[in-house]
Structures are given as C-alpha cells and as structure tokens.
Design a protein around this nucleic acid. Structure first.
Lengths: 226, 226
DNA sequence: CGAAAAATTGAGAAAGGTCAACGGCTGTGG
DNA sequence: CCACAGCCGTTGACCTTTCTCAATTTTTCG
C-alpha cells in the first residue's frame, strides 16, 4: 500500500475518540463548514488551528518562486491538516469539495492545557504524517508515470471508493491539474495515463471525476514496479 | 533556501537547551558513539529512542519492493532522527561518518513523564521535519537535475560548510549513490552535474567527497529555476 | 602493489515534457 | 430553450532531459 494522502486514522484514534467524548469538557474544537472553492488558510498565516476533516476534500499546496506548484497532500475525512512550523502555516489550504471540519486550537498540541487525549491524537497524527510523507517521497522520486497514477487511484479506491458490484467507484473531486501537481507530472501525462489504463481495461472513466476501477488487482500490480 | 536535510535547529532550541541544562534532572538521554558504516536502527524495529545528532552524519533510507532505494534524509548535527510511526521506526538509519548521539526515550515525546522542555524540543523538531519534508517534495517533483544538485550543495554549504578564503569547503561524507537516491537521480547524472558545475567554475572538486564552492551566488542561482 | 569499489564519461534509448489543436461539458445570457 | 464562451480534458507530433548500458579512470583499502 502506497501513497498516504495524509494521515490514515487508525484504531487508536477511534478508541481515544470514544473515551474522549463522554469526558468532562470534550474540548473538541468548534465545527466549521466551508464551500468548495473557498480557502481555509494561506502559507504564512498565523496557525491558530489544526483542522480535522470530517467530510469533503481539502488540498494543501506550496508554490515555488518560479510559479510551479506542488500539491503536498489532499485532506480526506479522518485527516488532519494545518500542522504549523513555529507559529505559521507552511502551505495554502483550499477546499476542493465542500467540507465539514473540526478546528482544534494549536495550543492543544504544544501545551499541556486542554485534555490529554486530544493532545495525543494530534501528536500521533503528526507522526503518521511524517511516515506518510516518506511514502510519498518514494512515489515522487522512484516511480514511473503509470506507477504513480495507479498508486494514486489504488489508495483513493481504498480510502474513499464505494463498491459497485464487482467494481469500485471513486469520486476524484479534484481536477487533472491537481493530480499532476501531486504526482509531479503534467496534466497531459496524467490524462494519457488514464487513457492507457482505460484501454487496458483496468479502469473506466465514467466522467472526468468519477473513475470506476474494474480490476483492482491489475491496478495494484501497475502501482508496483511493473 | 531549499532542501531542508532534516530539522534545522532554531533559536528556540538553543534557548530551551540553556534553560534545560541547569535544571534538576537534565533528563538528557544517554550519549552514544557509533562508527561509520554501523547501523542505528532498521525499519520495523521497536522505536525505543529518538536520537539527537551531536556530530557525524546519518542516513535515513527506505527500500521499495523492487529494490529501489530512497534516501529520505541525512542527519547532521542538530537534527533529530527516529520519529516513530506508532511504536516502530519507519526507515533504516545508518552511520555515514562516525557519530555522537543523544538517545531520548520515545516516551519523552508522547507521555507527560520526563521534563517539559525536552518534550517541547522533540515536538518542535517533529513539526519542523514535516515542514522540511514539504520543501523536499518541491525538489523531488519540480526541479531539474542541475537545480537539485545545486540546491543540495547550497544547503550543505550553509549548514556544514567551512569558510576557506573567499570560497567555502564542504565535506559531503556520503557517496554519489546516496546523493542520487536522495535527489531522485542516478549516480551518473549526479556525476555529470558535478562536472558541469565544475566546468562552469562554480565549484571545484577537491576529492570526490570534498567540494569547494567557488561562487555561492551562481550556485544558489542555479538552485532556483535557471 | 593489486583487487575491488566508486566515480566519470560517452553513446544511444526511453520517458515524459512542451506546444498546439480539438472536443465536450457547463453555465449564462439573449 | 438555444447559442456561445470558456474551461477542462484529451490527443498528437516533436523535443528535451535523464536513464541505461558500457567502457574507462580514479580512489580506496587490504
């Protein structure tokens, strides 16, 4: 399994969640709703909150001086976004599809104020993020275009795909350009690779955003060195 | 400034260090010495310690099923290595040049035991690592071979270079293959790029490991989009 | 000193990028 | 309700960069 998009929440989280909720002050930050296309924060903004995604999709990006853009990660339900560097955010964060978020105060992470369970959850999410980013390194540096796209679809299928008979349906939400900037490719190459996987009978393209994975096995084979 | 090799320690660290040392139990983990070529830990090992590099150079690597290797980071003095995912390390860590380390118990990070200052230092190091890895993404995905190598030398020059008249001397310690696996290139391309920078009069190659940076300005120009 | 490993260099091949054209879907305004 | 503008995605032709394979030189180390 490759391409950690962000932190896949694990059982520990669930457990802590259950334990946490019935306790005194839940100290769960406030809930927020944001529409597609809106911005959650910009690089350099004072990092007041760390957000936990409940629904929708977020996109974390950084921009190089020369204008080239890198999508650092996508934030899906269960992910945390907005870990600060010092007191500032170090990416932009935009809403790809309308989202429900829980805003945790940054201080919940680096102070002993607030409840211990939340602090642990945030810390573990940060550590998982480090691990996930390392997987992403392998992808960016050592995989071919086909392997990258297949890995991407494979992970997305597992995380947000819904079963549709023998196949699995995935709503990508984001555009080709976002996928390209995430995988370190061009939109043209992403598009060509989708076509190639379609012609191989591995996927079907229902709409540009909705991909049907016909042969999961073949897809994950293509994700590894082929 | 690009290519964070790992966490560049900032003033806050220094401050905390000073504050911390004279306090009751310093709770500084034990000091360890390891020779070049030795192994500190393997991927999957139980993560008992987080190490703080005092001297020498470490190399963090992961291996893909197909045998391809990715160097995740190099650990130079001031860096922290060994942040766990759950209870395990998620990379191999080898000693490139003999090193002095401080071993902090993992519990110093995720428990409230131990002193607060150490916990904060470790947490901040973890957050800086996330930020630094994001820079590395840009490098792997969006830079040409020349830009990668120039960025790499530029950062190394700042962090571990020593002034030598108008020039700056950098001891790389690691081999071309390590640099290649860090930058997502082949050893041949790294070698060719060194030659190209040498012929341009930007660097001199004293030995394969010792690089003299003759024109820092030209080097950092080459590191950005040229 | 000699063997083995590492680094360099060259020639050819392949992958992906660039530039350009085209098709299709969407939303808006007449 | 239709027409059209504009964005997005797809496809093609060509080009650049980097990889691959191979040969050679240099360094390291026993």
């Amino acid at each position: 399994m490759y391409v950690t998009l962000l932190n896949t929440h694990d059982e520990t989280d669930e457990l802590l969640n259950i334990i946490e909720t019935p306790r005194k002050k839940p100290s769960l930050g406030s809930v927020r709703f944001l529409p597609a296309g809106s911005n959650l924060f910009h690089e350099g903004d004072e990092a007041q909150f760390i957000y936990e995604v409940r629904s929708g999709v977020l996109r974390l990006t950084r921009v190089l001086e020369n204008g080239k853009r890198q999508v650092i990660a996508f934030g899906y339900p269960g992910d945390f976004v907005g870990f600060p560097n010092g007191t500032q955010y170090h990416t932009d964060c935009d809403v790809i599809s309308s989202t429900e978020l829980i805003a945790h105060r940054r201080s919940a992470l680096d102070m002993d104020v607030g409840d211990e369970a939340t602090r642990r959850r945030l810390l573990n999410a940060a550590l998982r993020e480090i691990s996930g980013m390392q997987d992403h390194f392998m992808m960016l540096a050592r995989k071919s275009a086909t392997e990258k796209v297949a890995s991407f679809l494979s992970v997305l299928s597992e995380r947000v795909g819904v079963q549709a008979g023998a196949a699995r349906k995935v709503n990508l939400s984001m555009r080709r350009a976002d996928i390209a900037d995430f995988l370190g490719l061009t939109t043209e190459t992403v598009s060509r690779t989708f076509t190639q996987l379609r012609k191989a009978g591995i996927i079907a393209i229902e709409t540009a955003q909705v991909i049907v994975i016909l042969d999961q096995r073949a897809l994950s084979d293509a994700a590894e060195t082929e």
